[in-house]
């Protein structure tokens, strides 16, 4: 059996983390999720630096990225990823409460793969996250890794 790739969730709010994991639990993907608390940690994970220096190598199948985070926000992380030859093709999905045109435009300009606004209604939220997990974790074919 092929080892399934991780899903990286960048989210600073523990409640959002918990609810997201609850949503993914139904589709049995919760155990594949790695949670990072801000933009800096996200990049450390991806580049195997700092606390994540000793992790198993390999990129996640998708990065679910919140925009508003401490230290370094999601837009900056996205810019960093797209300008790093090693991370460039990583599928990135914005998962945010912001519906602001500014954020949408910035994200698409920087080459985001999808932009999902967290629905206020939990049922909708569960559906959205479930679909995201299935699509990006199972259906979508990731680009070959750049070594």
């Amino acid at each position: 059996m092929i080892e399934l790739k991780k899903i990286l969730l960048a989210e600073d709010n523990p409640k959002d983390v918990e609810l997201t994991l609850e949503a993914l639990e139904d589709s049995m993907m919760a155990n594949r999720v790695v949670v990072v608390k801000d933009g800096v940690e996200t990049l450390e994970y991806l580049r195997m630096q700092g606390a994540w220096a000793g992790r198993e190598p390999g990129l996640p199948s998708v990065l679910l990225l919140d925009i508003k985070m401490p230290r370094m926000d999601g837009i900056e992380v996205l810019r960093e990823i797209r300008s790093d030859p090693a991370l460039k093709f990583l599928p990135v999905v914005m998962l945010t409460s912001s519906r602001e045109d500014k954020d949408l435009l910035n994200s698409y300009y920087l080459g985001v793969n999808a932009y999902v606004v967290k629905p206020v209604n939990f049922g909708g939220f569960i559906d959205a996250v479930k679909q995201l997990g299935i699509f990006w974790g199972l259906v979508n074919e990731v680009p070959p890794e750049n070594k």
Binding site: N13, D16, L19, F125
Partner: peptide, 10 residues
């Protein structure tokens, strides 16, 4: 709000 709704549903 989303959290309130989420936990209510849970």
């Amino acid at each position: 709000l989303r959290h309130i709704n989420g936990y209510l549903e849970l």
